[in-house]
Design a protein around this nucleic acid. Structure first.
Lengths: 342, 342
DNA sequence: GTGAAAGCGCTAACAT
DNA sequence: ATGTTAGCGCTTTCAC
């Protein structure tokens, strides 16, 4: 009897059947249609299974049924807590429903999205949950559509795809409004690589719209393509003669760095400068000053995307764009924004 | 022709074989032993595969070969960036080697560890990387050992298991030393639920040892079992008459909350109070004050655990405890600790 | 260098 | 209520 490096040969359904003096079909039924098995044999089989620690081989089951009970998840990175929180939500929701997940991170590189989709398809995942760089142009998304693979997007917003998201543009508009109420007029937006995130683009659009509505001209956009240089880049702007009195950041991670930049420039937040973030990562609430931000229900977004996808799947169909979910956000005042200084 | 909810029937090896006018065996060889196929047919088959977007069905392959090219990962949570960073490292290392991962989070509940192990085994993962609550007593670990399932621990340190970790006790001892150099004598440790983490226990041991070496009596331990109440719990201690002048926290997340607690008590860090963390999460470097902490190479720890596991696997054996890797850490001075105030 | 055929572990008709 | 059987897609001897 040979054994592979994966350890002792796991017991198979045949072994259980033999020991229980029933056919493999009956053992299978105990797991899949327990009601079709008499109470006595059911318990008998179950006892033997737990005694031997038997669990049906998932690959065999997947191969046979064409269902894997696995969901693929594609995210830009886990290092941004917003995605970690979301994935945690996905993990919990799937686990509660007897599903497992296979995640892949793209590091914001679009080619990786396609690669991840292909890999996940080869594993026969029942569906995928993804955050793509740009829903409008994503080739990965096109692959999915073309192969009729069930999927749901999270964070991305797009009318032709099933999504779970928050109205980022409106939210940003709200922020501008708040800031204007506080007397700010010189407001600048700080964002990462715009072309790597349609969310950032939408937030920027909302910012511009908000400024326009307030009759204000937006400061030149502050792009911080490399997060390592973000503090430096922002500091440079803050040292300029007519610096902004408020910085609107496209996400919390950038806002935290902006906070740091302000400190390095000797500026007091919110006394001299107001700063806002976007995402509502848990950590923002423990900072000093507490981060003012748009709070998204990240964990729930993960859960709901699982719900959207699985609901459709259980009805034997694809999720529809019309089932997209827009979740409420709220502006959290925090301590990092206040009255304009002058 | 029927189709399941997962979309169009993916092409199988038979389809490719038919179109290429070769046997399925040859197609298989193109993927698994390309050198055994003539250059001409190889390219021919490859062309057809990429034309049709064919990828071998992973479940069938796993069933047949008893190898899945999947690694299971069990972590307490993704919400603590230390684990997210580590998982990111694992994800990148596995992807680079053609492996995929299946993660499961336990939320620090030991029963979940066993459940996760069982689920992952049913998927036939080639090995598992895990952070367990307590390596000494973990039932999940016992299951693994008993079934001869290959695994590697990360963060946990234990002489009888293959691990990738950092000397937490020594590191903590170093911190105490630094603090003592700064003139601190009333030093208290803050930690989460001790029984949920052998790391925290080891760090505590190091703290006590360090204090002892310095001839100091440790302040009573500050346990903050519920992270939500952490700030409050710490603040209470800071308001006491003979409060500590330095707070040594068992991880960065707690340290960040301690920072907040200090602020709420009107204490200046590091002027009135020094605070240190542990883990070296990326975010700590962007805070104000920059967090003083023990920097662990979290990303690398993930990568190395993949290396440890896969190296053994490729030699057809289990990782051995003797192959355990202790990675270097360093104390990062940051801005949150300084001379004792009095 | 290539093909034929068996079988990995399971489930789902279809019998009984 | 239970058993028999075929086959999911692939890899791998074993022939040729």
């Amino acid at each position: 009897m040979e054994k592979n490096s994966a350890g002792v040969d796991p017991v198979s359904i045949l072994e259980i059947a033999r020991r229980a003096n029933v056919s493999p079909a009956t053992v299978s039924r105990v797991f899949n249609r327990p009601e079709k098995v008499s109470g006595a044999t059911r318990e008998h089989v179950r006892a033997i299974c737990s005694e031997l620690g038997y669990r049906p081989n998932a690959s065999a089951r997947t191969l046979r049924t064409q269902r894997s009970r696995v969901l693929g998840v594609i995210l830009p990175t886990l290092v941004n807590p917003v995605f970690a929180e979301c994935l945690q939500g996905i993990a919990q929701a799937t686990a509660a429903l007897g599903y497992s997940i296979m995640p892949a991170t793209t590091d914001y590189r679009v080619e990786m999205e396609q690669e991840a989709v292909a890999t996940l398809q080869s594993f026969g995942v029942d569906g995928m949950i993804l955050v793509v760089s740009d829903a409008e142009t994503s080739l990965a998304l096109q692959m999915l559509v073309q192969r009729h693979s069930p999927y749901a997007l999270v964070y991305n917003r797009h009318p032709h795809h099933p999504t779970v998201s928050v109205a980022g543009d409106t939210a940003m508009c709200d922020i501008v409004h708040e800031l204007v109420q506080f007397g700010h007029r010189r407001i600048a937006m700080v964002c990462g690589q715009l072309d790597a995130s349609d969310r950032a683009q939408q937030r920027l659009a909302g910012f511009i719209h908000g400024m326009h509505k307030a009759g204000l001209a937006p400061h030149p956009l502050i792009e911080v393509p490399f997060i390592e240089k973000a503090i430096e880049d922002v500091a440079k702007v803050l040292r300029a003669p007519s610096r902004p009195t408020a910085l609107v950041c496209s996400n919390d991670l950038i806002a935290i760095r902006a906070l740091r930049a302000a400190h390095e420039c000797g500026l007091n937040v919110p006394g001299d400068l107001s700063i806002t973030g976007f995402d509502g990562i848990r950590l923002g609430q423990d900072l000093t000053p507490i981060l003012s931000t748009i709070v998204q229900p990240n964990h729930e977004m993960g859960r709901r995307s699982v719900g959207l996808l699985l609901h459709a799947l259980h009805e034997g169909r694809q999720p529809r764009a019309s089932e997209s979910i827009t979740l409420p956000y709220h502006f959290f005042r925090g301590e990092s924004c206040a009255q304009a200084p002058f």
